[in-house]
Write a protein that binds this DNA or RNA. Sequence first.
DNA 1: CCCAATATCCAACGTCCGTTGGATATTGCG
DNA 2: CGCAATATCCAACGGACGTTGGATATTGGG
Lengths: 217, 217
Amino acid sequence: MERMTTPRRGPGRPRRADQRTTPEVIVEAAAGLFARRGFDAVGMREVAAACGVDVATVHHHVGTKAALYECCFARVFAAESEALTRAVATARAGLADGPGPAMAALHELVDVFIDFLEDRPEVTGLWLRRWLEPDRHAELDARYSEPLYHAVEQVLAEADAAGVLSEPQPHLAVRSLVWSVHAHVVGLLSGANGARQRREFRTFAHRWLDRMYPPPA
Amino acid sequence: MERMTTPRRGPGRPRRADQRTTPEVIVEAAAGLFARRGFDAVGMREVAAACGVDVATVHHHVGTKAALYECCFARVFAAESEALTRAVATARAGLADGPGPAMAALHELVDVFIDFLEDRPEVTGLWLRRWLEPDRHAELDARYSEPLYHAVEQVLAEADAAGVLSEPQPHLAVRSLVWSVHAHVVGLLSGANGARQRREFRTFAHRWLDRMYPPPA
DNA sequence: CCCAATATCCAACGTCCGTTGGATATTGCG
DNA sequence: CGCAATATCCAACGGACGTTGGATATTGGG
């Protein structure tokens, strides 16, 4: 039960003084592996090897493989949720200043999202795998994904009400752009896309916004 | 080497006369399982059970598990490629009749795509899983996905040249809409989406086209 | 300085999986 | 009808995997 905590300040330390394994290190390494290859294709011995320790050490720190998997999702999605919740609040603040600043705020929000996913492509890998497992993604969607989606939809609805843009289907609009970003990041995961693709996709995302939400006539 | 062929007309037939296992039946069942749960999560014994036969029978017909996996992709993607290639040709034909009919042709093309994926959601499952495996999707992308993408991009480029719409980034535009459709179909795979979501998504896809490609001023 | 606590590793257990050899029943052909 | 071919099943093998018990080295607190 004292698993998945920071290493005790109390007594006890490894045989090798230079190598202090923490649950964070394990979860970080495991998240990258799970995101790229999936739950079943990654073995506990492989996670251990990625951390330079034995299998039993991994189990000692994180418990079962399923628990490790959940920890990876919780850690990665919590980071995403935190970063984007802040960005959503910022975007909402700059919404009542007329159509021009409102669209700039939306551009900024999309940029933050793209930046985050480009910086941590494993988030895309984990989300897509989760969405491909119908029976598993329910709770995580409710905890991490849905609140974010809902917040962004609300931003769109407010902007709609304020008359700065028109969006009759915020639910689908948000998901459409989100999945487009994920498609882009999958190219980064595989190493097929580089700096040029990043620039091109960013201009595309901005154009997507500009065309989907043209200034009211 | 005589694996993966239709059952011989020659001698030899099963113990049970009512149950004639063909490779097609096995591949069909396996494709659904692989699409929903992934390669590693599906066992050969499970595929066999889905067909009502023994594991050895499956191996007798399809060879190794990897070969079965490849057959599932080839079979499903070939069907998709055939259906869409026809639709692309139709769309291209109705392109030179001015902006109005050209947009109608694009709507029709998108409808065919949505229809196909809604009818066979396992296609989305297989594609997404393939795209999540960086080292594996290269050949299949080259054989099935890229030609289709290229054809659609060419349609957009021709329409652009003909002055019926404006699309500076056909590559990303096509992928964006395709992934939006996949996102919709993932909801169908999990059973979360129903008839109402289908209607809503269709109108969204049409609005996407209308807003991304407004009639030239 | 000693002791309790513990992080680490080694070895092993039980299970499941992909795959195969061989036996058997069924079929088409001459 | 007899024979060759083969589709099917049963049983098993080897390996990989998740997990654990126990031994050992290392540490902080008294």
